[in-house]
Simulated scan of single mutants.
Amino acid sequence: MNLQLQWLVWSIALGLVYLMAYACVILKSEGVMWTAGPRDEGQPQQGLAGRLARAQRNYMETWPFFAAAVLLAHVLARESAQTEWGCLIYFWARVAYLPLYAFGVPWLRSLAWVVSMLGLVMVLAALF
Rank of each mutant, 00 (worst) to 15 (best):
W107F: 11
L108Y: 15
H74K: 04
G50N: 14
R54N: 11
M20A: 08
W85G: 01
Y97T: 04
G119R: 04
L108G: 05
M1E: 10
L71I: 13
S80T: 05
W85E: 01
A36M: 12
E61N: 07
F66P: 01
Q43Y: 08
A36Y: 11
V123T: 06
A81H: 04
V75N: 05
S29R: 11
L124V: 03
A81E: 06
Y18G: 07
Q4R: 08
V9K: 09
A125G: 01
I26D: 04
L71H: 03
Y97I: 06
A125N: 05
F91M: 08
G37S: 13
A68V: 10
Y22T: 13
R78K: 14
E30G: 04
A81G: 06
P106C: 10
R54E: 08
A36Q: 15
Q56H: 12
L3D: 07
R94Q: 07
L108E: 12
V121M: 05
M60N: 13
G119Q: 04
Q56F: 12
T35L: 14
Y22V: 11
M20L: 15
A36D: 13
M1Q: 06
V123K: 06
L88D: 03
L111Y: 08
G47I: 04
V105P: 01
I12T: 15
P106K: 15
L5C: 03
W7Q: 08
F65S: 02
A53Y: 13
E30M: 15
F103I: 11
G86F: 00
G86L: 00
L98N: 06
F103S: 12
L3M: 07
G119I: 03
G104C: 11
W7F: 15
A53G: 11
L52C: 05
R39E: 09
L100Y: 12
M122S: 03
A112M: 04
H74F: 03
E84T: 14
V105K: 11
A112E: 08
L88R: 14
E84M: 09
A73H: 02
T83N: 01
G86Y: 00
V17G: 02
V75L: 14
Y90L: 03
P44H: 08
A49N: 06
G50I: 04
R39W: 11
L108T: 03
C87M: 03
P64H: 12
E61A: 09
V17T: 09
F91W: 08
G42L: 03
W113P: 00
V17F: 13
Q56T: 10
E61T: 04
K28F: 07
Q45L: 11
K28W: 09
W92V: 09
A49S: 14
W85H: 07
L120R: 02
W7I: 07
L5P: 00
E30N: 12
V25L: 04
P38R: 12
S29Q: 14
R39F: 09
